[in-house]
């Protein structure tokens, strides 16, 4: 377990201001925040690259605040890889094992295993300058996990990569997290990464932690205006996706089933923009695949726009113009019909 107590560091432009945090064993913890919020600084304090002005960092109840980097058992993966340019892929990955004086045969087989797992076996004897970004990041991840660190820190590991490679690597990282049982702290400004990978998310703002919670908590119940504006998602659900016929996927949230045109399988997140949802008083004929009935739980007047919270066994946020709100004569407790198209449902 990682415990961070009253951590402070003032470095002019970047600042860590009294951070308290607890991260559980084997947890995948994502730190999400806009640039300049101090995410990387926090990571580098945990890694030991810098020392804090005050505060403590405990790893498995041991104070590591000022411990030398090589004794912490904390691995680091950077956005720009930081591979050793004068060493081959194999030599990069085996570096940590060599430092531990692991027998040669064992090094060989361990490196082969991990290269196979990340699909980079064919790059064994190549030098970093000849690799693509995705290949470099795979090598850098392999190099960090082969020594089985107690904690792995990932600093925007996917931000420099193309969408396709990023999705592939997300799968790899997930697999590694499960297989190696390493506690991970992943810093990013990308919501998709945060939602797909995280057990819990912390939102950072100007050197402080604005909110900590699981993805649904953070996105559905932002505790401050900053978090709400930063995450900017009104409707988010977690569920299990199953492909049904003709390019349609159904997501079971446990309470309701929602159709999406994005093909997915297994555990997913689902978001829906409030402006894509139609409301009517009576059931109407429609091409929309998703039809629900629910009672209005909350009405928030935002001026030209009225925000409704409708209970369709899941809380759903809907926007209406003031005019249509008045025309329909809606009030709290009133039952309405809800429609939205399967194409409006975003899953990841």
């Amino acid at each position: 377990m990682i415990r961070i107590e009253s951590l402070k560091k003032d470095w002019g432009e970047f600042k860590i201001n009294n951070i308290n945090l607890e991260i559980n064993d084997n947890e995948y913890f994502v730190i999400l925040g806009p640039s300049g919020s101090g995410k990387t600084m926090l990571l580098e304090l945990i890694a030991g690259v810098y020392h804090p002005d005050s505060g403590k960092i405990y790893l498995n109840e041991k104070d590591i605040t000022y411990m030398e980097l090589e004794k912490r058992g904390v691995g680091v993966v950077y956005q720009d890889y930081m591979l050793f340019p004068h060493k081959t892929v194999f030599e990069n990955i085996s570096f940590g094992l060599e430092m531990r004086k692991t027998p040669k045969k064992r090094v060989e087989s361990m490196v082969e295993d991990i290269m196979g797992m990340l699909g980079i076996s064919h790059l064994k004897n190549r030098y970093p300058r000849t690799l693509s970004g995705g290949e470099k990041q795979r090598t850098s991840i392999a190099r960090a996990i082969i020594v089985k660190p107690k904690l792995l820190l990932l600093d925007e590991p996917l931000s420099a990569l193309d969408q396709e490679i990023r999705e592939d690597l997300i799968k790899n990282i997930k697999e590694i997290h499960v297989k190696f049982q390493i506690t991970m702290i992943h810093v990013t400004h990308n919501f998709d990464e945060a939602l797909i990978l995280s057990d819990r998310i912390a939102i950072m703002k100007k050197g402080t932690i604005a909110q900590v919670g699981d993805s649904v908590e953070i996105f559905r119940h932002p505790s401050t205006k900053f978090v709400a504006e930063f995450v900017g998602v009104e409707n988010i659900f977690k569920g299990t996706a199953k492909k049904v016929d003709d390019g349609l996927t159904v997501v079971d949230t446990g309470n309701i089933s929602i159709y999406s045109t994005q093909e997915r399988e297994g555990s997913v997140h689902l978001t829906l923009r409030p402006e894509d949802i139609s409301v009517s008083l009576d059931k109407v004929q429609t091409s929309a695949k998703n039809v629900f009935k629910g009672g209005i739980k909350e009405i928030i007047d935002k001026g030209a726009i009225i925000k409704l919270m409708i209970d369709i066994k899941e809380p759903l946020i809907v926007f209406l113009t003031r005019q249509s709100f008045l025309e329909m004569g809606l009030n709290i407790g009133k039952e309405v019909w809800i429609y939205f198209k399967a194409t409006a449902v975003n899953t990841f």
Binding site: A47, V49, E68, L69, E70, M82, F84, R143, V147
Partner: peptide, 27 residues
Amino acid sequence: VDPRMEKVARTLGSGSLKTFFIITLPL
């Protein structure tokens, strides 16, 4: 030579003087 490269070497178990000789100096 990016100092973070030296830091990575150290997180992998190489002491600071050793890191200087096997990572930084060759570069």
